[in-house]
Design a protein around this nucleic acid. Structure first.
Lengths: 343, 343
DNA sequence: TTTAGCACTCTCAATGGTTAAGTGCTAATA
DNA sequence: TATTAGCACTTAACCATTGAGAGTGCTAAA
């Protein structure tokens, strides 16, 4: 439907615009990219591309700028290309430093976002896995002061969380040990989601039987699990983004920083990407979220074996260096996956 | 040295400028504040105040704006005033919601920063206490996978931290229990600082004796303690600050967000305030830090009894509503102190 | 099908004039 | 002597105008 020549022109326009934020006119296309055609011809082609929805002009006498469709075309043709062998030794240098954080996923992800933002000059983001899908390996209950218990939850992701639980009544460590054994027997190996359900069911039944030990166990379990932090979002590099010509407007920065503070919006977006394979790209209004309609996301999920372990990515302007971003995100995700696989 | 009349004028100028960001001229002073003097006289006084360094003009034909000295005068006279009884029921409403977080200081502080920024429309900040001064209550070591140990550290601040430690050799839970008992006997009740020192001394001695159990214990202890997170900084409300007329300039926002990302700068500043009593105010370049030379800090430390538990505060422009900020920070600090005291 | 030529449109930067605010100074006043 | 009125001066901010420059679409010729 699109002639080979039109494609080449479109590609050139997008690339030129990504390189510098000036609307690109017919002249620069002929000059910088050797088509062997005059500006007039290019104009014709560009007019066609505009009619088809790939380009727009900010105003009548300006050059053209890609639309979401235009970026999408560009990105899709990037995806079919064979891997970019840009030389980024820095990347490996940076990630080598992270090896020592293997044991602390939160810290690992938070450092990773910093790396992402340093490398890309955009916003680095990372989402730790949804607790629903992580499975519990073991619980340990430790008495802490008279009426408080620290529950230590071990999960299959190397993630360990603790939570202090207040009890009305005093409790002995011995009782705790029995509760602990019971909880482990009952719930270990199951996902948090399953456990949540079971606890709710059990609790409604327990009311009748009134077996204090088990009901206490359930109470502790519920406290520990319901308060288990939702999947956590790490963000870094806002200062990189401020200063980009695309964010010259204060309002845009404000919107972005609000989105970062909300976290909710971004988490929902990334959540969808947890399961998908490879680098995912969402361009501008492809995003249904309103705050994101002028931003693009390049993200990839990390896996430990088959299990999704989190999402890492970059948020930047639509006019993003997609090739570079994809390269960075892809390698980062692979690096983390490999590291967590223990290799 | 400053006549009573001059003081009143200076106070009026600062207050007027805080209320709206226009340089204040002699006319508005006479109009809004009833001095019973003509603009000409006020001009004389303001010229004197400028010569003394309390005021400046942005340009020849503009009104006057307070200097750091001017703000300092204003704030100092605020401090001598009796408490402001502004009615802020919202404040108490907000903080009631935090009661449930008593058991998780990190979460508590992070929510507090949000409250601070909502209430003040400036940047809310909170610093968790320096680990050097917190004392260890107990250690528990839990085996986790074959060659990994989870160390759970209980401190006197309700703060519980865990840390996964990788060992070269396999170890049984039984050995762990003995190590645990040893560590508790040796170190419980001491500050992290003291423990750090002891461990270092012990380790150099251990090399000779080569008692594997103790040397293992020391290794674990060092790992667990040295990696104990430094005092953590929580920040919220950047989007509140963007949009303030004082931050119309993109560069300022960029500087601020860089300072937030660094954390280091702000931590160092707040650290000094940990020990001091009551609300502390640092205005603009009173700050030796360069990034902060156009910002003011209003902060107060929280105490549990005598023990400093952290610092909460607000960062905003020099042209800050100090009275309000002081009120908010003071009450927040007191609220948290009270809550942690168990009342 | 491509291209040269041309009139048209629009932004951007510079210009200049006007207004309004606020000052400092001087001289008169209480 | 302290205060005030009056006045000339300075400056930023606003507005309209202008011209340059860039890029377009259209038409007609190659």
């Amino acid at each position: 439907m699109l002639s080979e020549r039109s494609k080449r022109v479109l590609y050139a326009v997008v690339q030129s615009y990504i390189n510098s934020p000036d609307p690109v006119g017919s002249r620069v296309v002929t000059k910088r990219y050797s088509f062997g055609l005059s500006p007039a011809t290019i104009r014709h082609i560009m007019a066609d591309l505009e009619e088809l929805g790939f380009l727009t002009q900010p105003h009548t006498s300006a050059g053209r700028v890609p639309t979401v469709m235009g970026y999408r075309f560009y990105v899709d043709s990037l995806l079919t290309e064979t891997g970019h062998h840009a030389n980024m030794e820095i990347l490996h240098g940076l990630y080598r430093k992270l090896e020592s954080l293997k044991n602390d996923i939160d810290l690992l992800l938070s450092e990773t976002t910093k790396n992402l933002s340093i490398l890309s000059h955009y916003l680095g983001i990372a989402l730790s896995p949804l607790p629903d899908l992580t499975t519990l390996i073991r619980v340990n209950l430790l008495k802490y002061r008279a009426d408080k218990v620290a529950a230590v939850l071990f999960t299959d992701e190397g993630l360990i969380k603790n939570k202090v639980i207040s009890l009305e009544a005093d409790i002995t460590q011995k009782d705790l040990n029995r509760i602990e054994a019971y909880l482990n027997a009952e719930f270990s190996g199951q996902t948090f989601d399953e456990i949540r359900l079971k606890v709710i069911r059990e609790m409604s039944r327990e009311k009748m039987r009134c077996d204090t030990l088990i009901s206490k166990a359930m109470k502790i379990c519920r406290e520990a699990i319901t308060s288990f932090p939702r999947s956590e979002l790490f963000v870094a590099g806002l200062s990189e983004v401020i200063g980009l010509p695309d964010f010259a407007d204060l309002r845009k920065i404000r919107e972005l920083s609000r989105a970062i503070e909300d976290k909710h919006t971004i988490i929902k977006l990334l959540d969808k990407l947890t399961v998908s394979e490879g680098v995912q790209i969402i361009i501008g209004s492809e995003n249904t979220t309103d705050e994101m309609r002028e931003l693009s996301i390049v993200a990839s999920s990390c896996k430990e074996g088959d299990k999704p372990i989190g999402v890492v990515g970059i948020i930047g302007p639509m006019r993003m260096n997609y090739a570079r971003a994809m390269y960075i995100v892809d390698n980062t995700a692979k690096f983390i996956s490999r590291m967590l696989a223990g290799k």
